[in-house]
Write a protein that binds this DNA or RNA. Structure first.
Lengths: 130, 130
DNA sequence: GCTTGACTTAGAGTAAACTCTAACTTGTAG
DNA sequence: CTACAAGTTAGAGTTTACTCTAAGTCAAGC
């Protein structure tokens, strides 16, 4: 069981942010009798996944929605389908971002090549066409 | 020569945002005698490049810095090197984002596969380890 | 018991990038 | 000439995701 500072160090995330994620309904650490947060391996793994989703720009609201579906799931009300739908939507989002990044990487590489060729005073675009 | 609404339509960007970019020093349209903005092909191409940089999360401040270097360039003070440095820094940034996205895409794909296999009531993680 | 560093809370503050409003001016079609 | 759509401005407001502060409580070593 980890304290917040250990989790903070292990995930390279400030304790402030970790508490903020809890307030936003993304994390549920247990507490000691005196109210101090305790995190186990499961929570650590989950936080790492959340950080991955955030790094790929999944909004906190959507992550919370995913968590809520998870917590709401039961025998008579299974939320698997909805969670799958959320994951698939984000997967598409990630793929769109990949496409945009690859195109832009290509464009920047070309621009860099032009800069290196025409070394002094590059033409490229006349931003202010006066 | 395009009006702001034409540019807006051509780039799928609101006129508000286009004016905001101008205020932030990223665009320099010419003006009619009465003060109405006019954009030529060069400005359109430049805006499209700016939108690419934004879509790959280059901060507006850095784009402005790039523009300022471009405008400041002259025979006695060539800024090519600095612009190249900025582009290379962003290129690295884009590559880092690509790496993160590819890893996360992989992870999500695995998770989706697990969901599809264990269809009802997926185990994955027990978020609230009570 | 005392100090010291880590923990707690509610709530305020910040940064970035838009996004909108209000009041006004300009351009165009009838 | 008139209507009205589209343009203009300064500046206020919004959203998202943190980030920090203040005032206090808890835990461990001496």
């Amino acid at each position: 069981m980890y304290t917040i500072s250990e989790i903070s160090r292990l995930t390279q995330t400030t304790a402030h942010t970790i508490r903020y994620y809890e307030k936003e309904g993304l994390l549920f650490p247990t507490r000691t009798a005196s109210g101090i947060r305790r995190y186990d391996e499961t929570q650590l793994t989950w936080l790492r996944f959340v950080l991955r989703l955030r790094a790929t720009h999944m909004p906190i609201d959507q992550i919370r929605e995913y968590v809520e579906l998870f917590l709401a799931s039961s025998d008579k009300h299974d939320t698997t389908r909805d969670r799958l739908r959320l994951l698939e939507a984000h997967q598409q989002n990630v793929r769109d971002q990949l496409a945009e990044l690859m195109q832009t990487e290509q464009l920047i590489t070309e621009k860099i090549a032009t800069y290196r060729k025409h070394h002094p005073s590059v033409a490229e675009e006349t931003l202010r066409p006066i």
